[in-house]
Design a protein around this nucleic acid. Structure first.
Length: 478
RNA sequence: GCCGUCGUAGCUCAGCCUGGUGGAGCGGCUGACUGUUAAUCAGCAGGCCACAGGUUCAAAUCCUGUCGACGGCGCCA
C-alpha cells in the first residue's frame, strides 16, 4: 500500500516527497513486526477448553478465551459458562480473587460477550461437566448486547438469525459433520485416481428438461446458473478419464419441502469406459466411505444430535442392495400399493420401498419415457417397457434420494430424438453432440446431494440445517 | 403450481369461538443475595394485536382482500 501511495501522493492529499514516504514505511514495518510477534505468542498462550477439562490440568493455571454461553450469579459470585469451538466450561468468578472492576464486568457481561480468562482448573462435582476454572483475571473483549436467541425459539426466528444461530451446539455439531463429509468426498476420489475437474457455473443451456433455472444477466445477454456439471463433465472425462467435483448447484423450482434447497452442493463424478453396473458400485463405495469417516471422527457430534448411531453402523456391515424399478413396484404391490408401470416413483412410494431395507438401496432401470434425454435405453433389460441405464440411491428412514446417475447416451440420433421430445432444440447442444463425433466411449456418472446426505447421516428433520446459510424459494437472507 | 396451518411485547405464547380500556413466562434494566445448574426474590420499562378495507355505538376478536412465514404434494440431489 505504501508503494502505491508514493506513486500518487497528490491524489492521496499527501505533500510528502517519495523519500519521506519510504522512511515512514520502514518505521511502520518495525512496529508491525512487533505487533505480529506479540499476537503470535498470545495465541499460543490460550488453551482449548476441551483440553483443560481433563484430570492432567487439575490444579494448573490456564488461559482460555471464548464466548459466554450461559451465565448466572449473585452479588459476590458469578458463574459464566464459556464456550469455544472445542467445548464449554464453567468459570467461577469470586469477588476478591480478581480486581473489582473485572468482577463488575463479569457480573455485567451478557450472553455471547467475548472473554479472555486466566484461572486455576479444578475438578468440582458442582460444575456442569465436572470441571471449572477459578478466575484470577476476567477480561471482557467485547460486551454483547441482549442476545436475540433465548430459550424459546421458533424455527422462523432461528433462520432469521442464522448468522448467530450457527454458534449453537447443534449447528456446530452439524457443521463439524459436514466438514468430515466434504473432506471424505475429496479423499475418496483422489485416492482412487480421479482428477478434480471444475465446470463453469454460468451455463447457456438447461440440461434436464423441465427444471427451472436461475437467470443471470450476462452483459446484454442472458445465461443461467449451473444446475449440474454433467454436460461439461462428459467433455472432461474424455480428457482426464475419471473426474469428480463438488460445486454449488442451483435449482429455481419453488419446492416447499424439508428436503429441497435452491442452492445446494452437489458432489459429482464422471468416468470414461464405465458402464452402469460399475458406476452403481462406485456410488455405494463412496457413501460407505463417507459414513465410515463420519463414524470415525464425529461420534460425539452425532450423539449430541441424538442420532441413533447403530443405524449408520449397519450400513458399514451390510452390502447395499441393487433392485430394478420393476422389482420396486413388486415390493410395493405386496404392501398393497399399486403403481402403474411407467409412472415415476413418488415420495410416498420411495418411502414404501425403503421400509423393507436398513441400508441405502440402488434402484436402476426406470422407464425411459420419464427419464432425461441423455439416459440411454437398455436394450438387454427385461421389463414391461423400454427402460434406461440409470439409477437412484435411496436412503433408509424415509427413502430420500441421495444419489442420482446414469450411463450417458452416445448416439446422436437418440439424443436428438429425446431432446425434441422434451421440446428442446438439438442445435443448442452442439458441443455435447461433438463429444459423440470424436471417439466416444461408454461413460457414466452420478451426483450426490451433499446436504441430503448430511441430513440423513445427522438425522435432521430439515435440510435447511445441513448448510450454514440455506437458500430457498422464500429466503435468501441472512 | 395445488392444498393446509399460522402472523398479538425483543423472544415463546394465552386472549379470538361468545366484540366492551391488551395479558403471562422468558430476556433487558434497577436493587438484594459468596456455589449457581433454565438460580431465586422485589420493582421498572417495553404493543400500529401483519397490512388494507368493511360490519358495528364499539373490532386483537366478526367478514372480505392483500402480504409474509412455515409445512405437505408435485419436481428433484
Amino acid at each position: 500500500m505504501t508503494t502505491r501511495a508514493s506513486t500518487r501522493p497528490r491524489q492521496e492529499g499527501c505533500t510528502a516527497s517519495p523519500a519521506t514516504l519510504k522512511t515512514i514505511s520502514l518505521r511502520k514495518s518495525h512496529s508491525l513486526e512487533k505487533y505480529f510477534k506479540g499476537r503470535f505468542h498470545a495465541t499460543r498462550m490460550f488453551k482449548d477448553i476441551a483440553d483443560v477439562m481433563t484430570p492432567g490440568f487439575s490444579g494448573k493455571e490456564v488461559r482460555i478465551r471464548g464466548w459466554i454461553w450461559r451465565t448466572r450469579g449473585s452479588g459476590k459470585i458469578v458463574f459464566p459458562t464459556v464456550r469455544d469451538p472445542s467445548g464449554a466450561i464453567q468459570v467461577t468468578v469470586k469477588k476478591g480473587n480478581l480486581p473489582d472492576p473485572q468482577f463488575e464486568d463479569a457480573l455485567k457481561a451478557l450472553i455471547e460477550s467475548s472473554v479472555e480468562i486466566t484461572g486455576t482448573v479444578k475438578a468440582d462435582e458442582r460444575a456442569p461437566g465436572g470441571y471449572e476454572i477459578l478466575a484470577t483475571s476476567f477480561n471482557v473483549v467485547g460486551f454483547a448486547e441482549a442476545y436475540p436467541i433465548q430459550k424459546d425459539q421458533s424455527e422462523e426466528w432461528l433462520r432469521e438469525n442464522r448468522h448467530l444461530w450457527i454458534r449453537s451446539r447443534k449447528m456446530v455439531a452439524i457443521l463439524k459433520v459436514r466438514h468430515t463429509v466434504v473432506g471424505a468426498i475429496h479423499q475418496f476420489f483422489r485416492s482412487r485416481g480421479y482428477y478434480e475437474f471444475d465446470p463453469p457455473v454460468l451455463q447457456p443451456n438447461q440440461c434436464e428438461g423441465g427444471s427451472t433455472l436461475f437467470e443471470v444477466k450476462y452483459y446484454d445477454m442472458t445465461t443461467y446458473l449451473s444446475q449440474t456439471w454433467q454436460l461439461y463433465a462428459e467433455a472432461g472425462t474424455f480428457a482426464l478419464g475419471k473426474i469428480y467435483d463438488m460445486a454449488p448447484t442451483f435449482r429455481a423450482e419453488k419446492s416447499k419441502t424439508s428436503r429441497h434447497l435452491c442452492e445446494f452442493w452437489m458432489a459429482e463424478m464422471e468416468a470414461a469406459w464405465m458402464e452402469l453396473p460399475e458406476v452403481t458400485e462406485v456410488a455405494k463405495e463412496e457413501i460407505k466411505f463417507i459414513i465410515g469417516e463420519v463414524l470415525k471422527n464425529n461420534k460425539a457430534d452425532l450423539e449430541f444430535l441424538g442420532r441413533d448411531i447403530s443405524k449408520l453402523e449397519v450400513c458399514l456391515e451390510k452390502p447395499f442392495p441393487t433392485i430394478s424399478y420393476t422389482e420396486g413396484l413388486d415390493i410395493l404391490k405386496k404392501d398393497g400399493m399399486d403403481v402403474e408401470w411407467g409412472k415415476d416413483l413418488r415420495t410416498l412410494e420411495e418411502e414404501g420401498i425403503m421400509r423393507h431395507f436398513d441400508t441405502p438401496v440402488v434402484v436402476t432401470h426406470y422407464p425411459k419415457d420419464i427419464m432425461a434425454f441423455y439416459k440411454p435405453v437398455d436394450e438387454k433389460a427385461t421389463a414391461p417397457g423400454p427402460v434406461a441405464k440409470c439409477f437412484d440411491m435411496l436412503a433408509p428412514e424415509g427413502g430420500m434420494e441421495i444419489v442420482g446417475g446414469s450411463e450417458r447416451d452416445t448416439s446422436i440420433a437418440e439424443l436428438s430424438k429425446y431432446l425434441e421430445r422434451d421440446g428442446e432444440n438439438p442445435a443448442n447442444y452442439q458441443f455435447y453432440m461433438d463429444l459423440r463425433r470424436y471417439g466416444s466411449v461408454p461413460h457414466s456418472g452420478y451426483g450426490v446431494g451433499v446436504e441430503r446426505l448430511i441430513q440423513w447421516i445427522c438425522g435432521l428433520d430439515n435440510i435447511k440445517d445441513a448448510i450454514a446459510f440455506p437458500r430457498t424459494s422464500t429466503r435468501m437472507t441472512p
